[in-house]
Design a protein around this nucleic acid. Structure first.
Lengths: 256, 256
DNA sequence: TTTCAATGTGTTATTATGACGCAATGTAAA
DNA sequence: TTTACATTGCGTCATAATAACACATTGAAA
């Protein structure tokens, strides 16, 4: 099936496969070269960038839809995924964009579920940058990482969705050690600190940071040392899932 | 229009007015007699209780839909509302229930948008119990408060939605002083403490609690004293919206 | 007038946090 | 080979936040 035929089919018959009015958009975070990055798609006929997203199969859990979208886009399974908000402004008109899109693709307009109003559910994902193989979808001609401080123009309200996702991540990082999902299995303390500093956008005291993180008990120090690095070689750590689960339940705030 | 006609119309033509596949359900919390309570509707033809809920108008923001539902059910405006999660299990079949419902109402079955799959968005609301005038809707024959420890059987997955809402409230109370929305404008320190103890389900030290709450700076002590009460009369406090907004922004966690 | 449960206002010990010192290490320059 | 030095590991100290507890005050009820 040619791309145009596929597109036409999606516009004409997609609603037989997917739920109407509902979509999912993912803010996929990665950490590389001391920078927090986000994975974006370049929408072929819109000329702008977009968050990876998709629709929900008629018999599919929304979380599974998000997982599916991520699997296809990154090649990864078992990704840390967090639903963070529903975006339901009636002004977020996908109609105009989709019509333009269709026109740019060389298809003439017709009635379609894609022109109806859409509510979207925002998820953010934390992935190990080194294991991701970005893969564009049908309607995209590129799939790339962008520094969160240097984002291109994005379609619709995707910039808003990104901002909300980042804000959510920052808040969550203060009471749940979710950062580990952004690192390889083995990492050094300076790497972990750099990650926290990058996400929270502030300098942290090296020694206090170490004490605080160690105190959570979710780290396991390895005997291994990082080689080939200038200056004193740091130890590797890995993160202990079992203790992590406990730490999550421990709760916060009012003790007595 | 008779009720049966209205019902039939809703099943046959509701999708011209509302978005398909999406609903909103509200967990409305109130505080009375030292107990945390939740407002439930008794679904006339289901014989079970339900969270107040509804649908989203084709041109309506989902938050506004939740506000509308609450306004009609409680008579209150400007309610504290918090979206907390999307429930999208494909197994939450509203189909079976709605068909049963229609049958019990004495209408024979027909094709309807109401038999399609629904995803619902959970909101929780915090209201001043003393100002609420519970009002059942068309399809309900009762609207009442229930202690959260003594809930009746509920339709569908509404018990799950309630549990998730309560859990969310408890977590949030630890870092945002949202409890004030559950109290009248004037309240005493013991009343506020009782509220916290009730929501968090644990005893708090009276003196430490006072210090901690005062330290947030969001309270304003009034000269007034509560009369007609046994034993020593406590002071009234009111809550300072301006300082509250500041406290919300202040943030939490990693300082350095 | 007395009693007593509940309130207002403390104090103290313990823990958590922020700010900082110093020796050890290993690469890179001398 | 030696030296310089940025970086790391491990520590101290002062301060702030928290938990645990004491005591005098109040005012309705006995």
């Amino acid at each position: 099936m040619t791309f145009e035929k596929e597109l036409r089919d999606h516009y004409l018959h997609g609603h037989e496969k997917y739920l109407r009015h509902i979509s999912v958009d993912c803010v996929i975070f990665g950490f590389h070269n001391g920078e927090l990055k986000v994975l974006l798609l370049h929408a072929r006929y819109a000329g702008k960038w977009a968050l990876p997203g998709g629709f929900i199969l008629k018999d599919e859990h929304m979380d599974h839809a998000a997982e599916r979208i991520l699997r296809v886009r990154t090649g990864l399974d078992e990704i840390y995924l967090q639903q963070f908000r529903v975006f339901s402004d009636p002004g977020r008109s996908t109609k105009k964009m989709n019509e333009q899109f269709l026109k740019n693709a060389g298809l003439k307009s017709f009635k379609s579920w894609m022109f109806e109003r859409f509510i979207t559910v925002g998820y953010y994902a934390l992935v190990d940058f080194t294991r991701v193989a970005p893969f564009p979808d049908n309607i995209s001609d590129a799939c790339d990482w962008f520094s969160i401080y240097n984002l291109p123009e994005m379609i619709l309200d995707h910039r808003n969705i990104f901002d909300a996702g980042l804000h959510n991540l920052r808040v969550q990082l203060n009471f749940q050690p979710v950062g580990f999902n952004l690192l390889p299995r083995k990492f050094t303390m300076p790497e972990l600190q750099k990650l926290y500093e990058t996400i929270l956008d502030k300098k942290l005291d090296r020694r206090n940071f170490q004490r605080k993180i160690i105190a959570t008990g979710i780290l396991k120090k390895l005997d291994e040392i990082k080689w080939g690095v200038a200056h004193k070689a740091p130890f590797y750590y890995k993160f202990d899932l079992r203790k992590y689960e406990k730490a999550l339940k421990a709760g916060l705030g009012f003790e007595s």
